[in-house]
Structure formats: structure tokens, C-alpha cells
Design a protein around this nucleic acid. Structure first.
Length: 561
RNA sequence: GCCCCAGUAGCUCAGUAGGAUAGAGCGGCUGCCUUCUAAGCAGCGGGUCACGGGUUCGAAUCCUGUCUGGGGCGCCA
């Protein structure tokens, strides 16, 4: 249980008790926001503005209520986390953590190890996060990097929060765009074999990577596919090309720590009946209408601005049609409690229709969350960098990772709130200096590792260290900061906004750097041994906390720098 | 025209289930390395939270109007 929630529970108890004994009149407690982190450290570790909120209904001055509650809470705090409780104008109850308890947590953090920071708000509920899902017609573009890092970071945080998380990539291997891709591949293949009578389709894929792929396929198979039925050849070569593209995509994403549990094929929805079943269900429930020779999903009746075509007048289903079947499959056959889709800003217009789909399928719309990542502007110094092949600039995700490295990519994309447009400064991200927060955080980890390494080299052991010797303000400040990690994880589970993690990482690094400057750990003087051992335990706990924080961000934790 | 997102320090951004004196990093200026990594630490300066109304004991945070920037309004995905 989070300390914050424990304090909230104590506060509720104190109110109940006061109301029972008649020292406070009856009033309803707010459901949330009972206990918060005050901005100023001298207000304590936690605070509650409850008296201010209930003063009117209680018909008592807020400060009086605060004092009454503070007095009640101060009794029986003994050896728990709560140290001092005080009332402060205009009507706050402030809580300060007990120093003894803080010191005891050093041991708890060391022991928790890689599980430090875990909370259990998820209670094993199944969450699917679907992200990236770029059409496999080429390498992942730099524009998709943000969504990739956001989804992957969210997945890590939700796992730590106790959810059973499935990371999924929806492979659009059916439909118009893929047909175009398959025919483009075939044209490049023929071209590589010297044939000039198989032109690239109009609006076909122009990328140089397909020329290479065509040559590769020609080298491997020779003219075999030119000698067979063209439709069959396109289908077979296309499948092979698709798999090659998925490999390329997988490798690029893997380089920035983005991995998937499931690569779901759109085609399977057609092959295994989900598409037909879903269409039948929509028709049965009266959510479709035939107009102008096409079949429409009548989402305007469910709050959308307009209806959307699901089956074209040509008889071919739209992307939206399979997407409906896909989402029904997520909740129905696969039984996810909750689904999170991460889309780019260019798709935000589709949110209302997906919400309409949920209603049509008789599913609670709140079980589907669509996160929209706003656009990213690449900059170098003060200049905007356009993703352009012609100018030799960064185009693919792979280019970006080559340029600035995986850790900087993760950090900067993760550090910005999804709904804000962001600038990605390539120069800053590349800089290996104090100006770069990536190094600031990793440097703290390297310093910690250095101390532990040298202690081991000197043959020092610290298992018997006595953490009650930790009394320096810098030591206690470091423990306080470490203990915030579970709160950060908990809040991400609620807000689905993992950008608090990089900010926390910087704060944690700051706390360690401060400790490092104020408190010398290693000493060869025997008189210093007890304090050294205690500080080694604290250093080890810091190692645990910082390594976990970096792991949650998908960043490396260097032992030396 | 309609819909979505944003506007906070010179720059990049946090802070928004309403709370106490609005924060960080960078850039600028000052100090600190014979001792565990100075990729560090300490300090100084820097704000009409785009603007106007409203709700509230209390608003950067909620409501509303305006302005500015980005995105979207296809039988494309």
C-alpha cells in the first residue's frame, strides 16, 4: 500500500471517529484527492486540504477542523511511516514522515530489488496496448517513433502497476495499400531481371528499399515468378516481401527497446470469420445502411459527426470495417478488460467513430482508451529538419537511432506529454555533456556503480551495516525521493501518461548527486567503518531505485561512463 | 465553416481528479576538484501562467468568449 493511501485511510478513520463522537458534524468525504504532495518541503511530505473543502458543510472554521484532525492523528503514530502531524493555516493537515521509518526503508528497497516500484492497482486485469501498427510497406518512419516509445513505456509502467499487459502490433496485410505494395514489389523484381514491360503501378511505392528488395528476390528466385500466373506470383512474392518488411520493422523497433507480444494479422479476421460475424451483428442490430451502392456504418446515430463506409460499392471492405471486427475480437474472443490504442494526431478524427463502434457492439466505451500523440518537429540547433530523402536527412526510425542513439530517443520521446506537440533537438540529444539530461541521469548510475565496485575491490562487506546511522539531510532526502517511485508508477496507471517517469529520474539523480557531494561513502579509516557500511546500504538501495527507473524507461544503466 | 490538441522564464518543457510563496533543465553571471567519476555541486538573475469574462473560501488547473500555432473533416490507411 502506498504511504499516501495509508495516510488517506488514517484520515478517513479520524473523521469517522470525530463524527461518531460528535466532535465533527456529519459530512461526505471527497472520493479522491484526499492526500497530496505539497509543493513546499517545509509543509511536510504529505498534506490534506480536506478541512478547507468541508468547512462550509461542517459549519466550522477550517483551521479548527485541521487542528482537531491533526491532534487525533498525532496519537498512535508510533513506529509507522507517519512522524509529525500538524495543522497549518488556512486549514491544511500536514504530515511528515518519520526519520526512523525512512531509515528502515533503505533495507526494504535493497530487498525489493528489481521489484522495487511495483504496485498492485492493476490486480492482474488484462490490458492490451496496440501501437505503432504501421502498414508494413516499408521501414518505420521517424514520425512513428514517438508513438512507439510512448506505447512501450506505458506497457512497462502498467506491468509494474500490476496489470497483465499485452503489447500488440496490428499488421494491415489486407486492403488497397498492401495490394499496391505487392504489385510494386513484383514490378521491382521484374525490373531486376531486365524486364521493362512490368511498370511500377501508378501511386506505387517508390522507395529505394524496394529496388533492393526486388534485386534480392530476383537473385534468390531467378525468373521463376515471371513464368507463372501473374496473380499467383504477386501473391507469393508479396507474402515473402511482407515478411521481410516485418523483419526490418521488428529490428528497427527492437533497437529502441520496443517489443511486441503479438503481431496480429488483419487477414486472419477474414480467414477465421470474425469479419463476417461482426458485419452480420451490425446489420442485425440495425447499425448499417445501404446508400449510393455502398454499405455504411450509421455512427451518426451514436454521436459521431457522420456515417462511415464499411463496404464500398465495389464490394470491397474498407479499413474501418476490419478495424471494427478487430476491436470486437479484442474484447470478445480475447477478453481484454481494457484496450489502449495509440494513434498519431493525423488519426484523431477517427476517435468518435471508434467510440460509436463500442456502443454498437454493446461494450462500455470507457474500456477503450485512444491516446493521441501529437506531431514531432525535428530540430538541429535552431533549424527545423525536414524528413526528406532528397536532402539526405533523417527519414526512418533507424536513421534517428543511428544519429542520436537509443537511450536519447527513449528519454526525449518519453519525457513529453503525448498531447503536446514537441520539438526533438537532435543536437541536444547527441551532445555527450551536462546539457543532456540523458547523461545526467545515467551519470548518477555510473557513480553509484563505481562506489559499489570499489567497495567490493577493497574487500568491504556491508550486509551488517546499520542504517539507523543515516542522519544527514542528504541521506534522508535521497530515501524520500526513492520512495516516490511506487507513487509515480501508480499515477501513470491512472493518467496513462508515462512522461512523469523521466522527470522523476532526473529528480532521483539530483538527490543522489547531492548525497554524493555531501556524504563521503568510502573510507579506509576503521573509525568510519560503521557509517561507511550504512552508506553502502543506502548506495545499494539507490542502485536498485535508479536501475529500476531506467529499466521502466527502457534505457540502459551504464556501470561506467 | 466544423471537430481535436496546445499556448507557463530568453529556449525546451513539467506542474492541470482546484490548494499554501508557479518549478526543472539549458543558455547568462559567481564560486567549488591533493580524498568514492567536475558528464557533478552551491549560489545569482529571469514570469501579466496568450488575452477577456465567469464559478469558488481559493483558478496555471474548471466553464465561456477571443487570438495564435498544429492536426483532422475521402467509397485512403
Amino acid at each position: 500500500m502506498l504511504v499516501r493511501d495509508l495516510i488517506a485511510a488514517r484520515l478517513r478513520d479520524a473523521v469517522d471517529e470525530a463524527q461518531r463522537t460528535g466532535s465533527l458534524p456529519p459530512f461526505d468525504l471527497p472520493q479522491s484527492g484526499l492526500v497530496e504532495r505539497p509543493q513546499r518541503a517545509d509543509h511536510g511530505d504529505f498534506a490534506s486540504g480536506l478541512p478547507l473543502r468541508v468547512a462550509r458543510t461542517a459549519k466550522r472554521p477550517p483551521l479548527e477542523i485541521a487542528q482537531l484532525l491533526a491532534d487525533a492523528l498525532a496519537r498512535g503514530t508510533d513506529d509507522g511511516p507517519i512522524g509529525e502531524v500538524s495543522a497549518a493555516p488556512p486549514g491544511f493537515v500536514n504530515f511528515r514522515l518519520s526519520d526512523d521509518w525512512l531509515r528502515s526503508q533503505v533495507e526494504a528497497i535493497r530487498t525489493a530489488g528489481e521489484a522495487f516500484g511495483d504496485v498492485d492497482v492493476g490486480a492482474g486485469r488484462r490490458v492490451q496496448i496496440e501501437f505503432v501498427s504501421v502498414n508494413p510497406t516499408g521501414p518505420v518512419h521517424v514520425g512513428h517513433a514517438r508513438g512507439a516509445v510512448l506505447g512501450s513505456g506505458l506497457a512497462r509502467a502498467l506491468s509494474a502497476a500490476g496489470f497483465d499487459v499485452t503489447r500488440e502490433y496490428y499488421v494491415n496485410d489486407a486492403g488497397n495499400q498492401m495490394e499496391l505494395f505487392y504489385r510494386s514489389v513484383f514490378a521491382r523484381y521484374a525490373e531486376a531481371l531486365g524486364r521493362t514491360d512490368v511498370p511500377l503501378p501508378e501511386d506505387g511505392y517508390q522507395g529505394a528499399y524496394l529496388v533492393e528488395l526486388g534485386e534480392e528476390l530476383a537473385g534468390r528466385h531467378g525468373p521463376r515468378y515471371l513464368e507463372m500466373d501473374e496473380a499467383e506470383a504477386i501473391a507469393e512474392l508479396g507474402e515473402e516481401a511482407l515478411n521481410r518488411m516485418l523483419d526490418v520493422i521488428r529490428v528497427d523497433l527492437d533497437r529502441i527497446g520496443v517489443e511486441f507480444d503479438v503481431w496480429f494479422r488483419e487477414r486472419d479476421l477474414y480467414a477465421h470469420g470474425q469479419y463476417e460475424d461482426t458485419m452480420a451483428l451490425l446489420r442485425e442490430r440495425g447499425y448499417t445502411a445501404v446508400r449510393d451502392g455502398a454499405e455504411w456504418f450509421t455512427s451518426s446515430a451514436l454521436g459521431d459527426e457522420k456515417d462511415n463506409v464499411i463496404v464500398r460499392s465495389t464490394g470491397a471492405p474498407t479499413y474501418f470495417a476490419s478495424d471494427i471486427a478487430y476491436h470486437r475480437d479484442k474484447f470478445g474472443r480475447r477478453g481484454f478488460d481494457r484496450v489502449i490504442d495509440i494513434w498519431g494526431a493525423d488519426h484523431q478524427g477517427h476517435v468518435p467513430r471508434m467510440k460509436a463502434v463500442m456502443q454498437a457492439l454493446d461494450l462500455d466505451p470507457d474500456r477503450l482508451t485512444i491516446l493521441i500523440g501529437q506531431l514531432v518537429t525535428l530540430k538541429s540547433g535552431g533549424d527545423i529538419v525536414r524528413a526528406s530523402k532528397r536532402t539526405g536527412q533523417i527519414v526512418t526510425l533507424g536513421d534517428l537511432v543511428d544519429e542520436v542513439g537509443a537511450d536519447a530517443c527513449r528519454y526525449f520521446f518519453l519525457a513529453r506529454a503525448a498531447e503536446s506537440q514537441m520539438e526533438f533537438d537532435l543536437e541536444l540529444a547527441k551532445r555527450e555533456s551536462s546539457e543532456n539530461p540523458v547523461y545526467y541521469v545515467q551519470y548518477a548510475h555510473a557513480r553509484i556503480a563505481g562506489i559499489l565496485r570499489q567497495a567490493a575491490e577493497r574487500g568491504v562487506t556491508w550486509e551488517d551495516g546499520d542504517t539507523t546511522l543515516l542522519t544527514d539531510p542528504a541521506e534522508l532526502a535521497l530515501v524520500r525521493r526513492m520512495l516516490q517511485l511506487p507513487e509515480v508508477v501508480d499515477s501513470i496507471a491512472v493518467t496513462l501518461a508515462p512522461h512523469s517517469l523521466p522527470h522523476y529520474a532526473v529528480d532521483l539523480a539530483t538527490a543522489f548527486h547531492w548525497f554524493y557531494d555531501h556524504c563521503r561513502v568510502l573510507s579506509s579509516d576503521p573509525a568510519d567503518a560503521p557509517l561507511m557500511k550504512a552508506r553502502l546500504k543506502l548506495t545499494e538501495a539507490s542502485h536498485v531505485a535508479l536501475a529500476r527507473t531506467l529499466a521502466l524507461m527502457g534505457m540502459s544503466a551504464p556501470e561506467t561512463m
